[in-house]
Design a protein around this nucleic acid. Structure first.
Length: 488
RNA sequence: GCCCCCGUAGCUCAGUUGGAUAGAGCAACGGAUUUCUAAUCCGUCGGUCGCGUGUUCGAAUCACGCCGGGGGUACCA
């Protein structure tokens, strides 16, 4: 789509000024025009289905209600089904009409749509040309990639995400033809309606490894990836952290891979729920109308900064933190909050996107744990305690106060939680644990003076508990990719 | 049509392989700060775990049925 957009709709100035932004615009534009034509083609069919559904519904309503109970129930049921079908069709039609109006209501867009009636096929053709090694498209792709990669790297960098090894789709491209050939050779892939497909017993949908126009698909790349990871990297587990809606794809992929001979590798779809908008409809990342990650992060950091500044002005002895320190705290708190919001929900549950949830700084949030950690650091700083020395001196932990006991029990459970997290790839178990731990620490902090403990033995014991708490929070948050801060 | 997921407090969600009076956060309300950071703590209010039947000593959890909501389903990448 981007290739087609570049060749037909490029704004050269915008491309020079903001390459990625312009490419994104082109993608959205082509996607919109494609959607327009698809909607125009689809609309009459849907309208026909709707009038059919209307007629059926009227017929049902006019029909006499059966005398027997069973008949009544089935009558009621089909009535309900019909009207729900009718409502569904109306909704779909409305959505298509809006799509069409969006283009036709804009003179420039309407003209473009008229000039590019076969945009969908032609855009696809650009992809298959690229796959076939077309020099122009390959050169363009080489031109686009660095800018896009740089934009991604900036985000990953800000989020503290690092990769051991990155291989894009292009890495596998040279091997795709032989994947298809190998599947054919084994009798796994057959031609169907001009496409090369693998059919898996019990699944109606085909697994298309090569389209009618010759282009390969994600299915082909995914198979080539499995082969590479097993043959070259000797992977024994491969995890796919992908939206639950791709479940069918992975079912077919894994089944095909096994039949292809890759039986010794554990292939797992670690699926996660769909992110829904306020209307409870899925966010569609490709349509480009979602909340951008960057603006989400910026907003989170701004809000965190407001709290930091507010706290600083309220301090009895005047502000302690300079601008750089405050900025660092705001970044850690803002980004940590977003990561935590995402990781603290059961990954399989769909969730409604909410700014408030993403940006909350009180209650069950990353901030809560970061704050508990900073409070421990405050104790050591205030008491001028050398933590390494404390650990070396080997004092005893005594548990007399209920708050001490509760905290210690929770600390001892850390390893169990990590086992459970790894077992089924459920980070929310770790967030639950850390929240409970931090909560127990806060209670302990309120009720058990550490530096001013009644005896030196008790003081050492409580210092050890505080130290362990900080270490555990630090490790736990670190595993979630969330930073800790010494002062907040 | 076929396949998959969900329904737990006003809201957002936990609830590990079935195990004790079903838990949090937010919201609401009431308290706590001369003492290590109040981004905090303590408390109150709030639930027929969608409905029914079954399996079990025991079900939010398992089975079946029903009601309600959502998603996927041949050439998009």
């Amino acid at each position: 789509m981007i290739l087609y957009g570049y060749k037909n709709f490029l704004n050269a100035d915008a491309y020079r000024a903001d390459t990625v932004g312009e490419l994104a615009r082109l993608y959205r534009l082509v996607s919109q025009l494609e959607g327009y034509h698809a909607a125009v083609a689809e609309l009459p069919k849907l309208r026909a289905r709707l009038s059919e559904a209307d007629a059926q519904l009227r017929q049902l309503q006019a029909a006499p209600v059966p005398a027997d109970k069973k008949g009544q129930e089935s009558h009621k049921k089909s009535l309900k089904q019909r009207s729900s079908e009718q409502a569904g069709l109306r909704e779909e039609i409305g959505s298509l009409e809006r799509k069409i109006a969006g283009v036709e209501g804009d003179a420039a867009l309407a003209t473009l749509a008229r000039q590019h009636p076969r945009i969908a096929e032609e855009a696809r053709l650009e992809t298959s040309r690229l796959h076939a090694g077309d020099p122009t498209n390959t050169a363009l792709w080489r031109e686009f990639m660095p800018a896009c990669q740089a934009a991604l790297d900036r985000m990953y960098d800000r989020l503290g995400i690092h990769f051991d090894l990155t291989l894009g789709e292009s890495y596998y491209q040279p091997g795709l033809a032989s994947v298809v050939a190998s599947l054919k050779e084994r009798g796994l892939a057959v031609e169907s309606d001009g496409a090369i497909c693998v059919f898996i017993a019990g699944v109606e949908a085909p697994f298309i490894v090569q389209k009618r126009d010759g282009a390969f698909t994600y299915a082909t790349t995914d198979l080539a990836t499995i082969a590479d990871r097993v043959d070259r990297l000797q992977a024994d587990v491969v995890l796919y952290v992908v939206d639950a809606r791709q479940a069918d794809h992975f079912k077919l992929l894994f089944a095909t891979a096994r039949q292809w001979g890759y039986t010794g590798v554990d292939l797992r779809h670690v699926s996660f729920g769909t992110i829904l908008g306020d209307d409870r409809r899925p966010f569609k990342t490709r349509s480009g109308d979602t909340v951008g990650l960057e603006s989400l992060i910026d907003e989170a950091v701004v809000r965190a900064r407001q709290i930091v500044d507010g706290n600083e002005t309220q301090k009895a002895n005047g502000p302690e933190l300079d601008d750089a320190a405050r900025a660092g705290i705001a970044e850690a708190v803002g980004i940590g909050g977003i990561k935590y919001a995402d990781l603290s929900q059961n990954r399989e549950t769909d969730y409604v996107f909410s700014w408030d949830k993403m940006l909350a700084l009180t209650g069950d949030t990353a901030t809560y744990m970061q704050y508990a950690y900073a409070r421990v650091c405050g104790i050591f700083r205030r008491g001028q305690i050398d933590r390494a020395e404390l650990r070396r001196n080997g004092g005893r932990v005594v548990l007399e106060h209920p708050a001490e006991r509760g905290l210690a029990l929770q600390l001892a459970r850390f390893h169990e939680v990590l086992d459970a997290v790894i077992f089924d790839y459920r980070p929310n178990l770790l967030t639950d644990y850390l929240f409970a731990l931090s909560n127990l620490f806060s209670t302990f902090f309120e009720q058990c003076p550490v530096l001013k403990a009644e005896s030196s033995e008790l003081r050492v014991s409580r210092l050890l508990l505080a130290d362990l708490t900080a270490q555990t929070i630090h490790r736990g948050l670190h595993l979630l990719g969330i930073e800790t801060i010494e002062k907040m």
